[in-house]
Computed example of a mutant assay.
Amino acid sequence: MDPAPTAGQVFRAVVHTDDAGAQYEARVKGRKLQLSNVERAAPLPATPMLQAKVARAKRRAQPTGQRTKKGAPRLDMPKTMAYEDAQRVHVLWVEYVRDLLGLDDVQEAERILASPAQVQQLQNTLLKADWTGARFAIVQSTNPALVHLNGVVLLETHEMFWILPAPKKGRESVQTKLCMVPKRNTVFRVVLPIGNETASLSLDLYGNQMRYTMPARSTRKHKARKTIELG
């Protein structure tokens, strides 16, 4: 078995210079050297500012379209979908909003609507509701091309609703392209079920008050106003 190489031999093999022996004698021999472990994970940055810089660098290294503002992978929405598939999501939302608002009984709904305090509470509850699966119709917007658009909400973001427009009769199975509708300066009309399928309540929702996603909206407070101007 060959003897283990000495420190001087290792140094000269790594440096590969003519004066390696002299450098070893002057700078290495007799001293303690801290060697790093290449398999060991790098320590965390020392300050929050440096940690933020490292996080930004990691986000930039991810492929475009596969990252969010906080660096977590996002779920890509399909660009097209059949309306009959969106209808299944709408059925689940109808059951959810009935339980949320307590509108299972027509007489109970009439009692709530007759009391201004109950109506205010109903509006506050709606502002904090999850709208994924709701059927919206746009009745007013600063973008005229969006007016009269109606369909099922499939995704809600901070400033947008992804809506699948309702197709013509008989084309529910055809793949339809989703539309991105901004919340800002848009008025949405939603029909809330009451009791059985024949009774309903139509309400207008102002997108300026529906901004932010559902978890953030649940902690915000809105002041009652007689009118809300669109920008």
Results as ranks from 00 to 15, higher is better:
Ala4Pro: 12
Ala4Asp: 04
Pro5Cys: 06
Thr6Met: 13
Gly8Lys: 15
Gln9Tyr: 11
Val10Ala: 12
Val10Met: 14
Arg12Ala: 13
Ala13Asp: 10
Val14Trp: 10
His16Phe: 08
Asp18Met: 12
Ala20Val: 13
Ala22Asn: 09
Glu25Val: 03
Glu25Ser: 09
Ala26Phe: 08
Arg31Lys: 13
Ser36Phe: 14
Asn37Ser: 10
Ala42Ser: 11
Pro43Glu: 04
Leu44Met: 12
Thr47Phe: 09
Met49Phe: 15
Gln51Thr: 07
Val54Tyr: 03
Ala61Tyr: 06
Gly65Trp: 06
Gln66Met: 11
Arg67Asn: 03
Arg67Met: 00
Thr68Lys: 02
Lys70Val: 11
Gly71Trp: 03
Pro73Lys: 02
Arg74Trp: 08
Asp76Pro: 05
Pro78Ala: 01
Thr80Gln: 07
Met81Tyr: 00
Ala82Leu: 06
Glu84Val: 13
Glu84Asn: 13
Gln87Ser: 10
Arg88Met: 10
Arg88Gly: 05
Val91Pro: 00
Leu92Thr: 09
Val94Ser: 05
Tyr96Gln: 09
Leu100Cys: 02
Leu103Ser: 02
Leu103Cys: 04
Asp104Tyr: 14
Gln107Pro: 00
Glu108Gln: 11
Ala109Ile: 05
Ala109Phe: 05
Glu110Gln: 15
Ile112Glu: 04
Ala114Ile: 11
Thr125Tyr: 00
Leu127Asp: 02
Ala134Pro: 04
Arg135Thr: 11
Val139Asp: 07
Val139Tyr: 07
Gln140Trp: 02
Ser141Leu: 05
Ser141Glu: 01
Ser141Ala: 08
Asn143Gln: 05
Pro144Asp: 06
Gly151Leu: 03
Val152Ala: 01
Val152Asp: 00
His158Leu: 10
His158Ala: 13
His158Cys: 12
Glu159Trp: 10
Lys169Arg: 12
Glu172Pro: 03
Glu172Gln: 13
Val174Leu: 11
Cys179Trp: 07
Phe188Trp: 00
Val190Tyr: 02
Pro193Gly: 01
Ile194Leu: 05
Gly195Pro: 06
Ala199Ile: 11
Asp204Gly: 05
Tyr206Trp: 11
Asn208Glu: 03
Gln209Gly: 03
Met210Asp: 00
Arg211Ser: 01
Arg220Glu: 14
Lys221Asp: 09
Thr227Asp: 12
Ile228Met: 02
